[in-house]
Simulated assay, not measured.
Amino acid sequence: MGRVVLFDLSSQDPERAAAFYSSVFGWKISEPNWGYYPVTTGDDNQPGIHGGISKGPSDFPHGTRIQIEVDDIEESIKKSVELGAQIVRDKMEFDNFYLAYLVDPVGNGIGLIQNK
């Protein structure tokens, strides 16, 4: 089963967005890394879904995307496309994971993440 493991908030003013969520909801916002502000929304006593805030690219300037953990990102991309999804960013490699962005058949932006 694909679990929702992260979220991304895209904004054209990520500093302002980070200040808002930190002030209103008490989220812990870390210093940015490559323009991505890691977000912690809970702790060991009351876990939450963590994520990040970044400046949205031209293909996703603002909005929220969930990241769904998958066992095989290539197979998940293939099956998603067969069922009507569109690829926004194909499989990308990072130090500890692979990531892809899609739009589901009804227009929702999602991310697929596979840990190495």
Results as ranks from 00 to 15, higher is better:
Gly63Arg: 02
Gly63Tyr: 03
Gly63Phe: 01
Thr64Phe: 10
Thr64Tyr: 07
Thr64Gly: 04
Arg65Gly: 06
Arg65His: 06
Arg65Asp: 03
Ile66Thr: 07
Ile66Arg: 03
Gln67Leu: 05
Gln67Phe: 14
Ile68Phe: 15
Ile68Cys: 03
Ile68Gly: 02
Val70Asn: 03
Val70Arg: 03
Val70His: 09
Asp71Met: 05
Asp71Lys: 11
Asp71His: 11
Asp71Trp: 11
Asp71Glu: 06
Asp71Cys: 00
Asp72Arg: 07
Asp72Phe: 14
Ile73Thr: 04
Glu75Phe: 12
Ser76Trp: 10
Ile77Asn: 09
Ile77Thr: 09
Lys78Leu: 04
Lys78Phe: 08
Lys79Gly: 00
Lys79Leu: 07
Ser80Glu: 13
Val81His: 14
Val81Ser: 11
Val81Asn: 13
Glu82Lys: 14
Glu82Gly: 00
Glu82Cys: 01
Leu83Arg: 13
Leu83His: 14
Leu83Phe: 13
Leu83Thr: 08
Gly84Lys: 14
Gly84Tyr: 15
Gly84Asp: 09
Gly84His: 14
Ala85Gln: 14
Ala85Arg: 15
Ala85Met: 09
Gln86Glu: 15
Gln86His: 13
Val88Asn: 11
Val88Pro: 06
Val88Ser: 06
Val88Trp: 06
Arg89Phe: 04
Arg89Val: 07
Arg89Trp: 05
Asp90Cys: 00
Asp90Asn: 14
Asp90Leu: 03
Asp90Trp: 11
Lys91Leu: 04
Lys91Asn: 05
Met92Gly: 09
Met92Trp: 05
Glu93Arg: 05
Glu93Asn: 08
Phe94His: 10
Phe94Gln: 02
Asp95Gly: 02
Asp95Glu: 11
Asn96Asp: 13
Asn96His: 13
Asn96Tyr: 12
Asn96Glu: 13
Phe97Arg: 01
Phe97Val: 00
Tyr98Ile: 00
Tyr98Met: 01
Tyr98Trp: 12
Tyr98Asn: 04
Tyr98Arg: 06
Tyr98Ala: 00
Leu99Ser: 04
Leu99Asn: 02
Leu99Lys: 02
Leu99Trp: 12
Ala100Asp: 03
Ala100Tyr: 10
Tyr101His: 10
Tyr101Leu: 06
Leu102Tyr: 08
Leu102Arg: 13
Leu102Phe: 03
Leu102Glu: 07
Leu102His: 11
Val103Gly: 00
Val103Ser: 01
Val103Ala: 00
Asp104Val: 01
Asp104Gln: 10
Asp104Tyr: 07
Val106Tyr: 12
Val106Gly: 08
Val106Glu: 15
Val106Ser: 14
Val106Met: 01
